[in-house]
Write a protein that binds this DNA or RNA. Structure first.
Length: 226
DNA sequence: GCATTAACCACAG
DNA sequence: CTGTGGTTAATGC
């Protein structure tokens, strides 16, 4: 099958683009493809971390079990690497990853990945780049959650989905209200009420899980104001 | 005190 | 799973 060959894969990351022919062949020999369905757990918090995972296609939520409730840290959209911090940072996973759509992934042996980092500076640079972007996102997310109130946090979550995940103001929320609450850091009841208020004020159009942001400016004002 | 905010609970589609 | 209403606890005038 053509897509089994890394060289011809359509979902290469910026890092993998820097690999030469021999390196791609090496990757191919140490890369195992699998599919996950919506809702499948890809790896679990507190379990032994094993491989580097590359998401070819699909959405994955990164979540941590807190003392009170589940917290969604971010949503990863393929093509991207998944779980680099938790594989290199500690032996134990510090977070779980769950598929929120059906997901195509490659499991890459950590050894192979490490060899590329050592031997190929450009590869390492691209990985570093990704990790830095992720860290910046996390700083922002952290401050926002600590200082905003409910409406601001939900508005932020919606803008995050629209801009970073779907690149569109109109999309189908890939989660339940409960999960949206885990993302925006509020209860499912609050999500319901807040969404209905946004709808009433004509800031969004809402039909079940289909949502369209009508007044982007107002929504981002709500997000900024907190 | 009173108002606001948001979580929790219970119940019903 | 979702929406709604009542209750309650914390916080800030």
């Amino acid at each position: 099958m053509l897509y089994e060959i890394c060289e011809y894969c359509h979902f290469k990351s910026a890092a993998v683009e820097t690999l030469d022919y021999d390196e791609l062949k090496e990757l191919e020999g140490n890369c195992f493809k699998t599919q996950f369905s919506k809702g499948d757990l890809i790896f679990k918090q507190d379990a032994l971390s094993s491989n580097i995972i590359f998401i070819r296609e699909g959405l994955v939520k990164i979540h941590i079990k807190g003392p009170e409730r589940e917290q969604i840290i971010k949503i990863n959209k393929g093509p991207t690497f998944l779980g680099i911090p938790t594989t290199f940072g500690d032996v134990i996973n510090h977070y779980s990853a769950t598929a929120i759509t059906s997901v195509n992934v490659c499991f890459i042996s950590t050894e192979t990945f490490r060899r590329f980092i050592y031997s190929n500076g450009k590869f390492a640079y691209e990985i570093l780049n990704d990790l830095c972007k992720c860290e910046l996102h996390t700083y922002k997310y952290c401050v926002n959650h600590l200082q905003k109130q409910g409406p601001g946090r939900l508005a932020e979550a919606l803008i995050y989905l629209a801009n970073d995940i779907f690149d569109s103001n109109s999309f189908v929320i890939p989660m339940t209200r409960h999960e949206l609450g885990d993302l925006a850091c509020c209860s499912r009841e609050s999500v319901s009420r807040l969404l209905n208020e946004l709808k009433k004020d004509n800031i969004i159009h809402l039909d079940g899980k289909k949502i369209t942001i009508l007044n982007e400016k107002l929504l981002s004002q709500i997000s900024k104001r907190g």
